[in-house]
Structures are given as structure tokens and as C-alpha cells.
């Protein structure tokens, strides 16, 4: 009877036996995926997944901004604002760009703008999920 062993975590999905391709370090996949949505997957050669993640997360963030959603700032002192800031921060470079260009600073006056705020926060949270997935792929914890 043979027992099928799982691939060790160190021999991740991005390693190719017998090839000279250098595997992407899991932390690099995580950080790249956080900074630019889908970049972690693109680094690992998962191009379709990376592009779908890029379009979905950037699209969601852009719609949130277009709906005049709020981009949270740090140090407001309000617990809910701090949670919103943590969610927004997940969008990585998109959050930095929004703060730099002053997007999402107008007060939320209509219901649709409140939807926009949620779109922005959720796009950040989804980006964190995607970056962690890229880390799992690079470390071999996720098979493919």
C-alpha cells in the first residue's frame, strides 16, 4: 500500500524541478500582492488569476471613489473610523494614491455615497485576502 504524501511547504507551487527559474519568496508575493492588487499572483505566473483580481479589486475601489465614497484617515479617534481605515489600508498603493490625490474626502451626504464607502473598504479587505492567497501559493500551502 502506498501513501501519497503532500508536497512539502518549502517546495512551493512556483518551483519547477530541474529548471533554473528562481522561486518567488512568499513574503515578496504577499507584499507585492498587497501593494498592487493581483501582483502576487502575476509574480507566481498565475496571469489569468492575477488579472482577474486586479480588475475586480481596482474596479471595486474605483466605483467606490466614483460613488463619492469616503476614504478614511488615521487618528480620528473614532473606533469605527479606525476600523474603516484598517480596511482601506488593505488596498495598498490604491489607498496611498487616493490620499495623495485627495479622493474621498468630501462628506457623505447621500445613500449611494455610503455604498461607495463600503465598496472602498471591502476592496481593501479583498486585496488582503488575495495577497494572503498569493503567499499560500508561494509557500506551497495551497496546491495550485
Amino acid at each position: 500500500m502506498t501513501t501519497k504524501l503532500q508536497t512539502p511547504a518549502i517546495a512551493g507551487a512556483n518551483t519547477m524541478e530541474g529548471s533554473s527559474v528562481k522561486p518567488t519568496p512568499p513574503m515578496m508575493a504577499l507584499i507585492a500582492g498587497w501593494l498592487v492588487p493581483g501582483a502576487g499572483h502575476l509574480l507566481l505566473g498565475k496571469y489569468i488569476r492575477g488579472l482577474l483580481l486586479l480588475v475586480s479589486i481596482v474596479g471595486m475601489f474605483a466605483i467606490g471613489i466614483a460613488l463619492q465614497g469616503k476614504v478614511y484617515s488615521p487618528n480620528t479617534g473614532e473606533p469605527l473610523d479606525m476600523l474603516g481605515f484598517a480596511g482601506d489600508l488593505g488596498a495598498g498603493a490604491l489607498y496611498g494614491l487616493a490620499r495623495l490625490l485627495g479622493w474621498g474626502q468630501a462628506p457623505v451626504l447621500i445613500a449611494v455615497a455610503d455604498y461607495g464607502t463600503k465598496f472602498i473598504v471591502v476592496s481593501g479587505l479583498l486585496n488582503i485576502v488575495a495577497a494572503v492567497d498569493a503567499h499560500s501559493l508561494a509557500s506551497g500551502r495551497k496546491r495550485s
Binding site: 482577474l52 475586480s56 471591502v122
Partner: peptide, 19 residues
Amino acid sequence: AVLLFALFTSIVFGITQRA
């Protein structure tokens, strides 16, 4: 808004939660 939210979120969940 519901359709857009569901579409984008489902794409990310599908990619990240299954192999």
C-alpha cells in the same frame, strides 16, 4: 450596486478559496 458588489466579491472569493 448589489450586482456589482456581488460580482467583484465572488470573483475574488472564487479565486482565493478554491484550488
